[in-house]
């Protein structure tokens, strides 16, 4: 269970490395990607169980990235981690089973929320 593979896609370097550090510290296998394209490539090489995706990114945005990642491995689960307070969940993502609870707004006061979200049953098929 602790061997879950997690991919963090975020264009903000410090965000992705600090979150990665935290999750690794919690015992996950964490990879990071700075943009959607590299995330897709990494996912194609070796799929991840959980992808934490930023929405507003240069090039491919988070929604497209999630759709692409999902296309590669439909069983992958997603957490949306956005700094945009006005973000509303597009229906395309809702269709994938992503609910409002899986949207985390930056900044988070305590990153433990990710741990609880990842380990919670909220994530469909959470026990991959």
């Amino acid at each position: 269970m602790m061997n879950k593979r997690i991919l963090i896609v975020d264009d903000e370097r410090l965000t992705r490395i600090s979150l990665a550090a935290f999750l690794r510290d919690a015992g996950y296998q964490v990879s990071i990607a700075a943009d959607g394209k590299s995330a897709i490539r990494m996912h194609q090489e070796r799929p991840f169980d959980v992808c934490i995706v930023d929405i507003r990114m240069p090039g491919m945005n988070g929604v497209e990235t999630i759709l692409a990642l999902h296309h590669i491995l439909p069983s992958s689960r997603f957490l949306i981690y956005t700094g945009s307070p006005t973000f509303t969940l597009p229906s395309a993502l809702s269709a994938l089973g992503i609910s409002e609870e899986l949207v985390v707004y930056k900044p988070v006061l305590d990153m433990n929320i990710f741990l609880s979200l990842i380990s919670s049953g909220q994530m469909r098929g959470g026990g991959v």
Partner: peptide, 25 residues
């Protein structure tokens, strides 16, 4: 504010995450 918030939240998030990492570390 809605426009600016994103630009603040991102670095703020990064900073706070980093601080939490330090705390944990």
């Amino acid at each position: 504010a809605a426009g600016v918030a994103h630009e603040i939240n991102n670095p703020l998030g990064a900073m706070m995450q980093s601080a939490q990492i330090l705390q944990v570390a």
